[in-house]
Design a protein around this nucleic acid. Structure first.
Lengths: 172, 172
DNA sequence: AAAATCTAGTTTCATATGGAACCAAGTACG
DNA sequence: CGTACTTGGTTCCATATGAAACTAGATTTT
């Protein structure tokens, strides 16, 4: 690791310098996996969330709720919390905001008056479809350094890591 | 939540059939990779950060700084920011806190008086070694569902994803 | 069926965080 | 040199967040 000041042309981004430092950390022999997974996750979502909040005033929490709602016709706030691992206060706030924005609608839950059935409005579906695209594209970019074979290897490995029988992945 | 209509790939478990709602989401066909990587990252660090802040009053930002400092003898705050992807305000606060706690020390940077050389104190080293253990152990648990072969596959894949020539992973 | 218990969701509070303003030191250029 | 501009780091501010208190509806117990 260099201990001298960074030297570069004015106006140029510090990307190359940053990258070498990142690379140095990422080849360490301790917590290689945990560190790199976290690094990837942050890098993947970072620019996406930024754009999302600038363009649509939708934050991380709101996006998660939107995502879940888009794939299950009707959900309660609790179910969203369970499947996303978010604290229920955040889910509550996110749902309320999305309802105010007209992207979600609530219907009374006949089975239990404490909770409500949450579902996407037509507008919510449209916004979701629109906002999903950058995620899909960025994922493709992220994976673009892998061969088709490697992608399916990764798919299998991720499936094993996230879909396990023990309780390693218990909610904490 | 038994027979709710669900949009999913044919043959995949429904929310109710999966052992958890998380499982149901994780088998979706969109952003499979991004979502699961983020999910894994969150799950890996979640309990660790909680314990860290309870036991040592060290938060996420402080831990990152500690980790970087433990692997490079001398660093500037800027370098830490670059290699961890954290905002400089957070690095600044974290460094200051760790200095107050006696875990880091600052030495003047002879080459540039604006920045200082940051390094671990003996105490900082001791605390780091102690706090690293749970991370190592939890990583081992996380990987325990993989065979030795699969772990090295994953290692290669992660290396490719994080150590690339293009600018996908440029700081944002 | 009244009392105690539990659960879904909301609100409150204290802290964490990112972005921009800011300050001091370094560099470029006349 | 002197002025303009860049850069490392800190501080300020507005927002995001998690944990716990709280409310109202549901369930259990006797």
């Amino acid at each position: 690791m260099s201990d001298r000041p960074v030297r570069r042309k004015p106006g140029q981004p510090t990307a190359s310098q940053a990258n070498s430092l990142v690379g140095a950390v990422l080849t360490l022999d301790v917590i290689r996996f945990g560190y790199r997974i976290g690094y990837l996750a942050q890098l993947f979502t970072g620019p996406l969330y930024r754009e999302l909040s600038e363009r649509h005033d939708i934050g991380r929490q709101e996006w998660v709720v939107l995502f879940c709602s888009a794939y299950f016709e009707k959900l309660t706030a609790q179910e969203i919390g369970q499947m996303s691992g978010r604290a229920k206060a955040n889910v509550s706030r996110a749902v309320n905001k999305l309802v105010r924005m007209g992207l979600l609608k609530r219907e009374p839950n006949l089975a239990d008056a404490r909770s409500t059935q949450i579902s996407l409005t037509r507008k919510g579906r449209a916004v979701f479809d629109q906002t999903l695209k950058p995620f899909v594209e960025r994922e493709a970019e992220m994976l673009s350094v892998l061969t088709v074979d490697e992608v399916s290897q990764l798919d299998i490995l991720l499936a094993k890591l996230t879909n396990r029988a023990d309780r390693w992945d218990a909610p904490y």
